[in-house]
Design a protein around this nucleic acid. Structure first.
Length: 786
DNA sequence: AGCACGCCGACT
DNA sequence: GTCGGCGTGCTC
């Protein structure tokens, strides 16, 4: 009787198939990685569990070799992955592909065999294809060496070479021939998307990347190797979060919060919201709770929405707990580093601390007593590309299973979180005061309805306030949530604007890069360019972006004032973010202009003034979350002001001073905002009073059956929706209607129950006549419902 | 993701 | 004539 097991492929086609355990194999357990034959190749797979019976009509093949002697993943880990896969309606292999570092997903390995004591002569290096060819005796002898720990696994050199990251060394313009199309397209790609592994670049652009990248490396224009983000951990200037170590005495509010959180922790865990105003010292609470978890012999994980914030948190944690093994982890680390972290945690037998971003939640951390999501409302916790999952959901699942505490911290909680808290389903602690002498800033509105001059985007009153702050030796942050120089380029000859041919949206002028760029798909053209309609080249930039705002401020402010800019363009080169933040923190500049990036968690004690150049941006988007998003952004950016001794002041420019949101932002009145928002959501049955999901459908642009299949799938969705009693809207072209040669469409589903959403999706997927061409995916609770 | 199969252009 | 380009299809 053959010993059959379910094995999941961690690469396409991601299937969970049946394989036989050969008699010479050691015992198997869920989570064990094995090399399996697939067609004529060898692949890595993960054992999910025993298979009850063989599928009909297929020949069951035997496994080739184990990839580790004791599984890196436990049965509980596999259980988490299986569960998450079921919720997201994707195969288990898709989740494991996200969860496992690259080196743990490949079967391209070599075994180093220590055979000097062996009775039987075996080669010193063995590859999977050799094992297949071995006779039974040799295989048996090899397995004895394996079980004795005399056989080591090494990822093949070619795979490791592909793991190297390619990153830009210098900003444009680059010293390459203007007609070197491939070199330029690689450079533009790196500029737009940031550092990428050679592997990812080859996948996205083509195999020519190998040669071109090598050439650019020789020319000193790109760097290949470890990502510089890793070096960032050691860079000074970021510093740990100040005040956390120096001010260990807790305030009364903090003491009360610790007591409440401890009660939740000791009653078997669960979620606990820390609703504390900006600057109220939430980090101290996280550290206190981490200490409690460690004292109870349990591991703790502290997560931040972005690498830079996680890195700051890591330094603080490492200083606070020098005696505890602390691991820093994020998705931009080299695969090698991630693999080391994964392996170390899988082997750990004492409690550990993990600090990182959302991808850390897939680490095999032993006995999780605490997970902290700092700034829990932040949308970066939701992964949108590839596979849509929310870190909060994974964190909730893990702490639920382990009986750990899930700590959600924010000054402006997610409306859904706060609703659960108000309903008593989540325990809550409140911090209403800032720590130390700091008080919350004064917020004022500036009416700019009458302003027209694009070279003077700030109202005179705002400019005066900036000048006064600089004169007093203080610092200023100016936020404009739109990067580039100008969002619209207007042709003076024919009144046409520059539009992206793929996305049908306006293209943004980037002066420093000398290009116009589509902010949806990243397509860009060199500027100056000719008008598509009339061939003229007399464009005038209209509207404001951070680049133009920084430029005009530089002109309006007194001689000697230094203005820094912080946005995705400015920090394309990895080390630039820390450079800019460090320079501002060291007061090498008086003004920092930036997008919402500057609103996130940074602590600048000398900033006394925050100006929001366009408060109305994002307020009237056709999305149920737009006012929540705007409120959170404005309160967060206002929170950057007055964190030191001098009280802060916030000016918000608006063309619409009567909007009810302003009163709540001005008063920092989360409760008032929440009341108004929740009654609106009740009225329109928006979440949390309903469940929203997006069905994404895409097919290659040249696939002629695409539209027909699309309408078939749309019909199936509506039909099934009627049966289940859920609303289905669409299909409508997605905001990025064309991406990588595929046409994309969305259907919005609104239901009272996730299970109905899954049922409707499953019925639709089942009638898809050509799943290879027409791909469908389900995004539960999408960030944007467009 | 790999790898085979299969059908068209530029070479010893 | 063949070598080899990459479109398409399949993998327990």
């Amino acid at each position: 009787m053959a010993d059959l097991w379910q094995v999941t492929l961690v690469s396409p086609p991601y299937a969970a198939w049946t394989y036989e355990r050969p008699s010479h194999f050691p015992d198997l357990a869920p989570g064990q990685r094995v090399i399996i034959p697939l067609g004529n190749s060898h692949r890595a797979g993960v054992v999910i569990g025993p298979a009850d019976e063989a599928p009909e009509g297929v020949e069951i093949k035997p496994m080739i070799w184990p990839l580790e002697r004791t599984p890196l993943m436990s049965a509980e880990y596999v259980d988490m992955v299986v569960n998450l896969a079921a919720r997201q309606m994707v195969s288990v292999g898709r989740i494991l592909e996200i969860a496992l570092p690259r080196g743990l997903r490949t079967a391209a390995v070599t075994f180093k065999v220590d055979n000097h004591m062996a009775a039987r002569r075996l080669p010193a290096t063995v590859r999977p294809s050799d094992i297949v060819r071995f006779g039974d005796k040799d295989r048996q002898a090899l397995m004895e060496l394996w079980e004795a720990g005399r056989m080591r696994v090494r990822v093949s050199a070619r795979k490791e070479a592909e793991e190297r990251f390619v990153s830009l060394v210098s900003d444009p313009p680059w010293a390459v021939r203007p007609n070197a199309k491939r070199q330029l397209s690689l450079l533009e790609h790196l500029l737009e998307n940031g550092p990428r592994s050679l592997y990812a670049l080859k996948y996205g652009l083509g195999d020519w990347v190998d040669g071109v990248a090598a050439k650019l490396e020789t020319a000193g224009i790109v760097h290949m190797g470890e990502l510089t983000a890793d070096a960032m951990e050691e860079v000074d200037g970021g510093g740990h979060i100040e005040g956390v170590l120096d001010d260990i005495t807790l305030t009364d509010e903090q003491v009360a919060a610790v007591a409440e959180m401890t009660a939740t922790m000791e009653s078997g865990g669960g979620a606990h919201l820390v609703h504390g105003v900006t600057g109220s010292g939430k980090t101290v609470l996280y550290l206190e709770m981490a200490r409690k978890s460690l004292n109870a012999g349990r591991s703790a994980m502290l997560l931040a929405p972005e690498v830079a914030l996680a890195s700051q948190l890591y330094r603080t944690v490492a200083r606070r707990f020098p005696e505890v093994r602390t691991i820093f982890y994020h998705g931009y680390q080299s695969p090698k580093k991630r693999e080391l972290a994964f392996r170390e945690l899988a082997r750990a037998d004492t409690p550990v601390l993990v600090v990182g971003t959302r991808s850390s939640l897939f680490l095999p951390v032993p006995d999780l007593g605490l997970v902290v999501l700092d700034e829990e409302h932040d949308e970066s916790y939701k992964q949108e590309e590839r596979l849509a999952y929310h870190a909060k959901e994974v964190a909730w699942f893990r702490t639920d299973r382990s009986g750990g505490l899930l700590l959600l911290g924010s000054a402006t909680p997610d409306v859904k979180t706060f609703h659960a808290a108000s309903a008593g389903r989540i325990a809550t602690s409140e911090l209403k005061e800032r720590v130390g002498d700091a008080i919350l800033p004064e917020v004022e509105l500036v009416d700019i309805a009458a302003m027209k001059d694009p070279d003077k985007p700030l109202a005179p009153r705002a400019v005066e306030a900036v000048k006064a702050a600089i004169k007093a030796g203080e610092q200023v942050i100016v936020m404009l949530n739109r990067r580039g120089y100008a969002p619209v380029m207007y042709c003076l000859d024919c009144t046409e604007t520059v539009r992206c041919p793929e996305c049908e949206v306006g293209m943004t002028y980037h002066k420093g890069r000398e290009r116009v760029v589509c902010h949806y798909c990243g397509l860009s053209y060199a500027y100056p360019l000719r008008c598509r309609k009339c061939g003229g080249s007399n464009f005038i930039p209209m509207g404001q972006g951070t680049e133009r705002l920084a430029e005009s401020l530089q002109e309006q402010l007194p001689e000697g004032t230094k203005v820094l800019r912080l946005d995705r363009d400015a920090v394309r080169r990895q080390e630039r973010l820390e450079e800019i933040l460090g320079a501002f923190r060291r007061k090498e500049a008086q003004v920092l202009v930036g997008t919402q990036m500057i609103s996130k968690g940074h602590h600048f004690p000398d900033v006394t003034l925050v100006v929001v150049a366009d408060g109305d941006l994002g307020l009237n988007l056709p999305d149920y979350r737009s006012s929540e998003r705007t409120f959170q952004l404005l309160v967060q950016v206002a929170g950057r002001a007055g964190r030191g001794q001098v009280p802060g002041r916030v000016l918000i420019q608006t063309r619409n001073p009567d909007h009810p949101l302003w009163r709540e932002v001005l008063g920092g009145d989360y409760a008032g905002f929440y009341q108004r928002e929740i009654s609106r959501r009740t009225m329109f049955k928006y979440p949390p009073f309903s469940r929203m999901a997006l069905v994404r459908i895409s097919f290659p642009a040249q696939f002629e059956n695409g539209p027909a299949v699309l309408s078939l799938l749309g019909d199936a969705l509506r039909e099934q929706g009627r049966k289940e009693g859920v609303d289905v809207l669409g299909p409508a072209p997605a905001p990025l209607s064309m991406l990588r040669g595929r046409k994309r469409f969305n259907c919005l589903i609104k239901s009272d129950d996730w299970s109905k959403v899954r049922a409707v999706f499953a019925c639709m997927a089942a009638v898809n006549p050509d799943p290879r061409q027409v791909r469908t995916s389900l995004d539960l609770d999408p960030l944007s419902t467009l």
